[in-house]
């Protein structure tokens, strides 16, 4: 893409893009940190994640201000307009991912104090790795402007949903086996729910990034493999 006749316009657009990259990297780091803190009951790491959320919020504010000023000053068109509007929306999702990671980190203490069923960490870990892969992937694909990759990544969210259902069932089993597991398992259930929500924000980001790159929207309905809901004919 060529440069703008007005060079400072390019600089302003780059600043917005850089903020999205920074927020994306920070979100990945926060999710990774929260997961490691949870699985290894690492309190100090959990606190770092909580502290990082302040940086995330500040970056989002910076991005909002920059984007609004840019719209007011430049009245961007076509791909520039898509980039700015897309950035505002992606920043919202990245900020929420940060919040959810912080929430996981805050539960580390509560889960650690009680006896966690050891073998449970395996299925949570598997889900967490899926989610982390998605968060990192969506940022990389946005930076590389790869529309096809974004489309595939969005479809991959169903793997997280399937894993979430598995974790949910497993946690229920442990709670029924021994009521002393209930506190830890409930916190873990919230953690799993948070991870699942992070996955949903990643699909939002993928959809926005796809729009920024191509100018067209992905179809509203993601392909789903859920066979339990049968459609009722009218």
């Amino acid at each position: 893409m060529g440069e703008h006749t007005v060079r400072s316009f390019d600089e302003e657009l780059q600043h917005v893009d850089q903020l999205i990259r920074d927020m994306g990297d920070l979100a990945s780091a926060m999710v990774a940190g929260a997961i490691r803190a949870l699985l290894s009951s690492d309190q100090s790491l959990a606190q770092n994640v909580v502290a990082d959320d302040t940086i995330m919020d500040a970056k989002q504010r910076d991005l909002d201000n920059s984007a609004i000023t840019l719209i007011a000053k430049r009245q961007p068109m076509a791909q520039d307009l898509r980039a700015v509007v897309g950035a505002i929306r992606m920043a919202g999702d990245l900020e929420r991912i940060g919040d959810l990671a912080k929430n996981i980190a805050k539960r580390v203490g509560a889960v650690g104090q009680s006896a966690t069923p050891r073998n449970l960490s395996h299925s949570i870990d598997a889900m967490a790795q899926l989610v982390l892969g998605q968060v990192r992937g969506v940022v990389d694909l946005y930076v590389a402007r790869q529309a096809e990759g974004l489309k595939e990544l969005r479809a991959d969210d169903q793997k997280i949903d399937i894993q979430y259902t598995a974790v949910f069932r497993e946690l229920l089993t442990y709670m029924m086996e021994d009521p002393r597991n209930i506190t830890a398992c409930t916190h873990l259930l919230f953690c799993a729910k948070n991870l699942e929500r992070i996955g949903d924000h990643v699909t939002n980001i993928a959809e926005n990034a796809y729009f920024v790159v191509t100018g067209t929207q992905l179809p509203l309905n993601r392909p789903k493999v859920d066979e339990t809901t049968a459609t009722v004919p009218a």
């Binding site: 703008h4 068109m77 076509a78 067209t216």
Partner: peptide, 19 residues
């Protein structure tokens, strides 16, 4: 035309990248 034009020249012109 103003959100997703097909031609590169249109894109360059409306986004202020011409010449």
């Amino acid at each position: 035309m103003f959100t997703n034009p097909d031609d590169k020249r249109t894109q360059d012109y409306i986004t202020g990248r011409f010449g």
